[in-house]
Write a protein that binds this DNA or RNA. Structure first.
Lengths: 159, 159
DNA sequence: CTGATTAGTTGTATAATACAACTAATGTAT
DNA sequence: ATACATTAGTTGTATTATACAACTAATCAG
């Protein structure tokens, strides 16, 4: 791996990250919900039923953040939130009928997005791309750990 | 591309997007700056000199957002902001010495991150991954509303 | 010269987020 | 079984990131 290859690769990843952000944003906007709600919705839909704590874990967010996101979704009628009678600490979060509708809709849009993308890529590359992303994603998962060196900047006297 | 393949692919992309977000965050935190500052810093460093307007275009952000981000960076001594005497509407944004230091440092960290990732991937897959990501990124670019990109950038020496 | 365009700033609003302090429920150990 | 610990979730508070609209100042075009 040569340095300039890494740089080019970083550039591609950065661009892709930006594109993925735009995708979420426009998809959510299309359905009249926020990006955070969109992500939560997809996860609740996928699980069928999930606790707030688990949802926060899956999304990598604090429970306080999720609590408020879900509050908003309850208010606009996307999900239902009820206490689990077996252990009254847990919430059971599920999609309402309307939530289900939006879920299906967003899923369709995302699927279409990727279908469109692969439509403009030669078919004989598809398997390779699939494998590559899988390798990359797996490698990343095992490499993410925030070990900091806290030296560089703290507070610079404003000139 | 079969529906369930697309779903799995989406899942991988989502995970990667999350990992990339974490990466930016921990890198920025390590250097005592915010994520927005980190991205701006990388872009200013890459260009050497850039106007606020062009920087906003490259990053896909509103100039008001960038104006405040740069304000913060000036305050902590990362960049310098001076009026272009040839056209006094333009700012010329450049790295300070300290900004240069942090720029080099962040670049090193990002490079290392990707080097580490590729280190755990069989070498004979590297070229394939490069090609795949390139294909994917290009396909995405042409599928995303090409609202804010290259055509707005007129005058900067690179690197 | 006047009106239009352009770069940047400021006012305001909102989304997304974390951390800390809290409540309520449940588990555990003496 | 009582007291302490742990867990799920909420609320208070603060910060970051962001956009849009209204504005100023500079420059361009007719």
């Amino acid at each position: 791996m040569k340095p300039d290859e890494i740089r080019r690769f970083r550039e591609v990843m950065r661009q892709m990250q930006r594109n993925l952000g735009l995708l979420s944003k426009s998809d959510a906007a299309c359905c009249g919900i926020t990006v955070a709600q969109c992500h939560a919705l997809l996860e609740v839909g996928r699980s069928g039923e999930i606790t707030l704590f688990n949802l926060a874990s899956v999304l990598g967010l604090d429970t306080s953040t999720l609590s408020r996101t879900i509050e908003g979704m309850v208010r606009i009628g996307l999900v239902e939130r009820k206490v689990n009678p077996r252990d009254r600490r847990y919430l059971s979060i599920t999609l309402t009928e309307r939530g289900e509708q939006v879920y299906v809709d967003i899923n369709r849009t995302f699927d279409q997005f990727y279908a469109d993308i692969f439509a403009v890529i030669p078919e004989d590359k598809h398997a390779q791309i699939f494998e590559s992303l899988h390798l990359l994603s797996t490698a990343m998962d095992s490499n993410i750990d925030p070990n900091c060196r806290e030296e560089l900047i703290n507070e610079q006297p404003a000139k």
